[in-house]
């Protein structure tokens, strides 16, 4: 097996591999076998993941197998739906076929969340610089992804937009860079500061409103094998018109919220407990409230400057 960039593969090879379920995406700690016959999904993939590493050769041992397809009957009955099938009990949401990319992204997230037990996973975005990592915990409407995307423009590298992946042995965070998912108003916000060409077409009418993805950066892929030590945990809260505010959080509260956001903490058990406790011993946690992206950046930069290198 050898690694090549997705963009190095001729389109017909990508198409064939995808239709055979043998496109092995090697990203961060995971290898995912992707399978789809949907042209929209294929286009999205070849665009957003163009610099990603693909395993080429015989059959690979994969962590996950994900098939994005039209559900059998639906093809006949309602011809415009598509579903992600990660091959285990957890079913995905059938979506209109134009939302195939969303299906792919959700399916890949589900694979990690529900089938990976080697690292403790928490629902959070992670960025880092040479000082260490910032964990941006997910809260409904908190603006995790927008803030993550904004920090990417400020010179931070992206480890993940969706998962803080904690290595049980080292309690360092692992990178699993994927396109950053943006919702509704934040799509335009990110188009402005990242450049319109860095953002995918808008998917309208999803269960969560409009969604678009911020393209993966080559630099984040190149550094994807470098872990980061968490230094700061943020719990963002977006409130329209709110004045920027910072409140220091009890680490115990932060731990509670992180554990509650983990799909596999309970499954991993003791190693996850140790790793999390070790990580928390070296961090500070803050709740930040803001009304716009500039304010959130300002707050984070201030907090980050106060963190020891």
């Amino acid at each position: 097996m050898k690694n090549v960039a997705l963009s190095d593969l001729p389109p017909e090879t990508v198409k064939r591999l995808l239709s055979e379920g043998r496109l092995y995406l090697h990203l961060g700690p995971y290898v995912t076998a992707l399978s789809t016959k949907d042209a929209g999904v294929r286009e999205f993939l070849t665009d957003m993941y163009q610099d990603c590493s693909i395993l080429v050769g015989e059959e690979a041992l994969v962590d996950f197998s994900l098939e994005v397809r039209a559900p059998n009957l639906v093809r006949r009955y309602i011809r415009r739906q598509i579903v992600a099938d990660p091959g285990f009990y957890f079913p995905a949401v059938p979506l209109p076929v134009k939302l195939g990319p969303l299906c792919l992204e959700m399916g890949m997230n589900l694979c990690v969340a529900l089938q990976s037990f080697r690292q403790a996973i928490f629902h959070a975005g992670v960025v880092s610089d040479q000082k260490g990592g910032i964990v941006i915990a997910a809260r409904s409407g908190g603006g995790k992804s927008t803030l993550t995307a904004a920090l990417m423009e400020e010179g931070f590298r992206l480890l993940s937009d969706e998962f803080a992946i904690l290595c049980a042995e080292t309690s360092f965070l692992l990178a699993y860079p994927r396109p950053v998912s943006l919702k509704n108003q934040s799509i335009d916000v990110v188009r402005v500061f990242a450049g319109a060409d860095q953002v995918s077409d808008r998917l309208t009418g999803t269960p969560k409103g409009d969604i678009a993805y911020r393209r993966l950066r080559k630099s984040d892929l190149e550094t994807a094998n470098l872990p980061a030590k968490a230094k700061l945990i943020l719990f963002p809260r977006f409130q329209a018109e709110a004045a920027p505010a910072v409140e220091k959080m009890d680490i115990a509260d932060a731990a509670m919220q992180l554990i509650a956001s983990s799909p596999n903490y309970q499954v991993i058990g003791e190693p996850a407990f140790h790793a999390l406790m070790q990580m928390l011993d070296g961090v500070e946690a803050y709740e930040i409230t803001y009304g716009n992206t500039e304010d959130s950046l300002m707050l984070v930069k201030d907090l980050w400057e106060a963190v020891d290198g």
Binding site: V31, L61, D63, S116, F117, R118, Q266, V267, I268, G269
Partner: peptide, 21 residues
């Protein structure tokens, strides 16, 4: 000595240890 295989088996073993627990 297949590292990928070991990784997958460990992953599965963690899951089954949980059920057993």
């Amino acid at each position: 000595d297949n590292k990928r295989l070991q990784t997958l088996l460990e992953n599965a073993a963690t899951r089954s240890a949980y059920d057993k627990r």
